[in-house]
Design a protein around this nucleic acid. Structure first.
Ligand SMILES: Nc1ncnc2c1ncn2[C@@H]1O[C@H](COP(=O)(O)OP(=O)(O)O)[C@@H](O)[C@H]1O
Length: 413
DNA sequence: CGTCCACAGGAAATCCTGGTTT
DNA sequence: AAACCAGGATTTCCTGTGGACG
C-alpha cells in the first residue's frame, strides 16, 4: 500500500510504466501459497492424523449397516476443533463409497444444526433431511408432523438404512428442547424395512446430561470422546496441511511450531491452528515476503482475535448491540456491572437512537445471548440483603475491546 | 434464625411474517 | 377468504432464592 502511494508521487516515469511495473512485480513474485483452499475451514483431508482410535471405533459401530442391520446410535463429544466433524465426515464418505460400489441401500446424512436458516429449527432440520433423500418441501407453512411422516414414508419405501449425523446437536436442544429427538427415537420402532441411526455430535457435555432420560439412553448406545490435541499433534496436522498449501520453502518450521503452540494453549483447537496458519500466510504475502515467518504468525494471532470479535459484533441484532454498548459503558472505570446498571444505560441508548425500549426481562435474555457468543461473561450472584443479580464482565482483551467500542460508537452515537 | 431484597429465569401469551391447505 | 402452521421477538405473569441484615 505504501509502495503504491510512493510510486504515484514519483513524477519521473509515466503512469502507464509505473502501473505495469507493479503488475509485473506482482507476477514475478509467486507468493507463498500453492493451494490456499487446503487451509479452508471446509477442506477435508483424506488422512486425519492422531485419530486412528476414534475413527476405528466409529467404523466398527457403523459397519453393521453393511450387513443390513441398524448400527447403534453414537454420541460423540469433545471440544471445538478436536476433529469430530472431520472424522465423522470422513467415515461417512467412505461408507457411502462402499455402499454405492456394493449397491447397498445405505444413506448417510450429515447436518450441522447450527447453520442459520438451514437446520437450526425443528422444521428446517426436517426439511433438510427430506432434501437429502430427494424430497423438496416448502420453506414454511406445513405442520412438522407432515414432514416426519413424509420422511419416514420415503425411507420406508426405499428400505434405507439411514445414518444421520447431527453436528452441534447441543445448540438445537438448547434452543428448541429435546422433543424432536424423542420423536425420532420413538418412530424408529415402527419402521418395517427402513432403519435409522443417529450420530450426535456435541462439544457441550452439560447440555447432553440434561436430556430426557429416554432420549439419552437411546441416543448414546455408544460413546466416543475426542480429547484436545497437544502441541506436537497440532504440529503434525499443520505440517501435513502446510505441505499442500504452501510453496516449497515458503514456510518455516518455526512458524508452524508457533501456530501449534498458540493453538495448543487455546484448548488444542485445530481449527484455530489452521486459521492462524492461513492468516499468517496472507500477511506474509501482503508484506511481499516469500516466506512465512514467526513474526507473521504473531501478527496473525493478534488479528484473528480482533477479526472474529468484530465479526461477532457486526452480526449481532441491533438490540443486542445496544445492550453490549450499555455493558461497555457501565464497565467504564471498573470491570464488573450488574443487570440493573446495564439496563439504565441501555434505556438511554435505546431512546436516544430511536430504538424500541425493551423490558428488563428481555434485556436479561439478551445479556445471556451475548454471553453465549463469548463477548461477555455473566454469572448470577447474591448480594444478600441487597438481592440477587448478575455480575457481568466483558470477556475481551484491551485491543479487542477498543475495536468493539469503536464499532458500537459508530452505530449509536 | 427468619426476612426480604432485587433480581433470575420458566411458562404462556401476543404480535408478526411468510407460508400452506381447503 | 378463512383457518392453520412454524418461528422470531417480545411482553406479561410468575415462582424461586442466596445470603446480609436485623
Ligand atoms: N486429525 C486431524 N488431521 C487433520 N486435520 C484435522 C484433524 N483434526 C481436525 N482437523 C481440521 O481442523 C479443523 C477443525 O476440525 P473439526 O473436525 O471441524 O473440529 P470439531 O468438529 O471437533 O469442532 C478442520 O478444518 C479439520 O479439517
Amino acid at each position: 500500500m505504501s509502495q503504491l502511494t510512493l510510486c504515484f508521487h514519483d513524477d519521473v516515469t509515466s503512469n502507464k510504466e509505473k502501473i505495469q511495473r507493479i503488475f509485473i512485480e506482482y507476477m514475478r513474485n509467486k507468493g507463498v501459497f500453492k493451494n490456499k483452499a487446503v487451509l479452508d475451514e471446509n477442506f477435508l483431508p483424506d488422512e486425519l492424523l492422531h485419530r486412528d482410535r476414534e475413527i476405528q471405533r466409529l467404523v466398527q459401530i457403523l459397519a453393521p449397516a453393511l450387513r443390513g442391520y441398524r448400527p447403534s446410535n453414537v454420541f460423540i463429544y469433545g471440544g471445538v476443533g478436536t476433529g469430530k466433524t472431520a472424522c465423522v465426515k470422513l467415515v461417512l464418505k467412505e461408507l457411502d463409497e462402499i455402499a454405492e460400489r456394493e449397491n447397498l441401500p445405505i444413506k448417510t446424512i450429515y447436518v450441522n444444526c447450527k447453520l442459520k436458516k438451514v437446520a437450526d429449527t425443528e422444521y428446517r432440520l426436517l426439511a433438510r433431511l427430506l432434501h437429502e433423500i430427494g424430497i423438496e418441501v416448502p420453506s414454511t407453512g406445513l405442520p412438522t408432523d407432515v414432514l416426519y411422516l413424509r420422511f419416514f414414508k420415503e425411507i420406508e419405501r426405499k428400505g434405507l438404512i439411514t445414518i444421520i449425523a447431527l453436528d452441534e446437536i447441543d445448540f438445537l436442544v438448547y434452543k428448541i428442547g429435546d422433543d424432536f429427538l424423542y420423536n425420532f427415537t420413538r418412530i424408529n420402532g415402527e419402521l418395517r424395512r427402513a432403519k435409522v441411526s443417529f450420530i450426535g455430535i456435541t462439544n457441550n457435555l452439560n447440555l447432553f446430561r440434561q436430556l430426557d432420560a429416554r432420549v439419552k439412553s437411546s441416543l448414546s448406545e455408544e460413546e466416543i470422546v475426542f480429547h484436545p490435541y497437544n502441541a506436537m499433534q497440532l504440529k503434525d496436522i499443520l505440517k501435513q496441511r502446510a505441505k499442500l498449501a504452501f510453496n516449497d520453502g515458503a514456510i518455516t518450521e518455526a512458524a508452524i511450531n508457533k501456530c501449534a503452540a498458540i493453538a495448543a494453549q487455546e484448548h488444542g483447537d485445530a481449527r484455530r491452528a489452521l486459521n492462524l496458519l492461513r492468516l499468517a500466510g496472507e500477511i506474509a504475502e501482503r508484506r511481499n515476503s516469500q516466506v512465512v515467518l514467526e513474526e507473521h504468525v504473531d501478527e496473525a494471532a493478534r488479528k484473528l482475535e480482533i477479526d472474529s470479535v468484530s465479526e461477532a459484533v457486526r452480526s449481532l441484532p441491533r438490540q443486542a448491540q445496544a445492550v453490549l454498548l450499555a455493558i461497555i459503558k457501565s464497565t467504564k472505570n471498573k470491570n464488573k456491572t450488574t443487570t440493573s446498571d446495564v439496563y439504565r444505560k441501555y434505556r438511554d441508548i435505546a431512546m436516544r437512537s430511536g430504538l424500541r425500549v425493551l423490558t428488563l426481562r428481555r434485556v436479561g435474555d439478551l445479556i445471556n445471548e451475548l454471553a453465549l457468543v463469548g463477548l461477555v461473561e455473566a454469572r448470577t450472584i447474591s448480594r444478600g440483603r441487597y438481592g440477587r443479580t448478575r455480575e457481568i464482565t466483558i470477556a475481551l482483551d484491551e485491543p479487542a475491546k477498543d475495536e468493539v467500542r469503536r464499532l458500537l460508537f459508530g452505530y449509536f452515537m
